[in-house]
Simulated scan of single mutants.
Amino acid sequence: MLIINLIQKNTAFLKKLFAVILYVIPACICISCTPAPEASTGFLYEYGVFLNLSPETAGYEAKLANYHTVVIDAQYFSKEEIKGLKDKDHIVYSYLNIGSIENFRNYFNEYKSLILSNYENWDEEYWINVSDPVWKDFITDRLAPSLLEKGVDGLFIDNVDIYYQYRSEKIYNSVTDILKRLKSKSPNIIINGGDTFISRYIDEKKQPADILSGINQETVFTAIDFEKGSFKPADIETQEYFTDYLKKARKQNIDIFLLEYTNDDKLRDEIKHYCDINGYLYYISSSIELN
């Protein structure tokens, strides 16, 4: 308050000093958080991704308490538990994996015949044939409705990157079909990753609003060393590619979210500053487990 009062006296020097302070000092003081601009929602942070959090996690409600928009795996939450979160004014998105299948899902045995290949670095996961009508109908007519019926506000779609792994017209058209069908069921669709698919979709002058409302891009400024089980800064080429891609997406009126992994305070501050000046929301996790 002292600095603000001095500025109000129209002292030019102090105005410049305050601008420098705003640039240098981060507004976020915790390890994994996104500050809410002006605290307009009443929450301390605007966005958090908690895919490995469940009602069995001790104190799970307290872990979510400070976050306005939260991404959870609603398959493991009841309708009443999700209502409890919404009653506390959380906006709740549910994880939905359309491009791969995990062996711990209760529907794994029913669809494992559609597996295409192993998923690198994730032993429990496999790329799946999204062009198969059986899988498409399962995702859009059974799985997604079962999540939406629980009262979630939107869907957080993972593994659109199946098109990066299998770059064929059949896969591209099938992903497009799935996303359009999902968007018809929920206006709020955040796609996690999927830059190869989304870039092509935009380049073809199609309407992104037909398939999504937002993009969550992982590891723009950070990288995961799976062999060492640690984090590191992303290389410059990766950073430039993704920042250019996100600018391109933003011009299409797509909401942008970043999900980063680091324990480095300096890098965390750089990510925060980048998101603040571009109007993006972000979540920085100190754990790949997202719990």
Rank of each mutant, 00 (worst) to 15 (best):
Y126P: 03
N173W: 09
K232E: 10
E102T: 04
F221A: 03
K112L: 05
I189C: 05
N103C: 02
Y119D: 11
P35Y: 13
D203C: 02
I82E: 05
L179T: 08
I171Y: 04
P233D: 03
Y60H: 02
I139V: 14
I178D: 10
E227D: 13
N192E: 05
Y95C: 01
G154N: 08
S186C: 11
H273A: 13
E149I: 00
K170M: 08
T262H: 05
K9H: 11
L114G: 07
G48E: 06
F226Q: 09
T222K: 07
I82T: 02
K248W: 07
S199T: 15
R200N: 11
Q8F: 07
K248N: 13
A62C: 01
D210Q: 11
I256G: 11
Q217P: 12
V175S: 11
V160W: 12
P187W: 12
H68D: 11
A36V: 14
T140F: 03
F156N: 04
N253H: 15
A39G: 09
G154T: 02
E110L: 14
W127M: 03
I157C: 04
F104V: 04
I91H: 12
Y164A: 10
P233M: 06
S174Y: 05
G151E: 04
E46M: 12
N10S: 13
S199N: 10
A223C: 08
F197L: 10
D195W: 05
I31P: 00
S184I: 00
I202L: 14
S146P: 00
C30D: 14
E124H: 06
K180Q: 12
C275Y: 11
I190K: 05
V92A: 01
Y67N: 06
E81Q: 14
K206F: 01
F257A: 06
E46V: 14
F231Q: 08
E237K: 15
H90I: 03
R142V: 13
V92G: 02
N129K: 13
L182C: 08
Y95L: 05
G151P: 00
Y241H: 14
S186R: 05
G48K: 00
S184L: 09
N66W: 03
P55F: 03
T69A: 07
S32H: 10
R181T: 07
G48H: 01
K83C: 00
E227V: 10
G59R: 12
D269I: 03
Y283C: 02
L14I: 15
S40L: 06
P133H: 08
K88L: 10
P35D: 04
G84I: 00
T34R: 00
D161M: 01
P145L: 01
P35L: 13
I4K: 15
G154R: 06
D161C: 03
G99T: 09
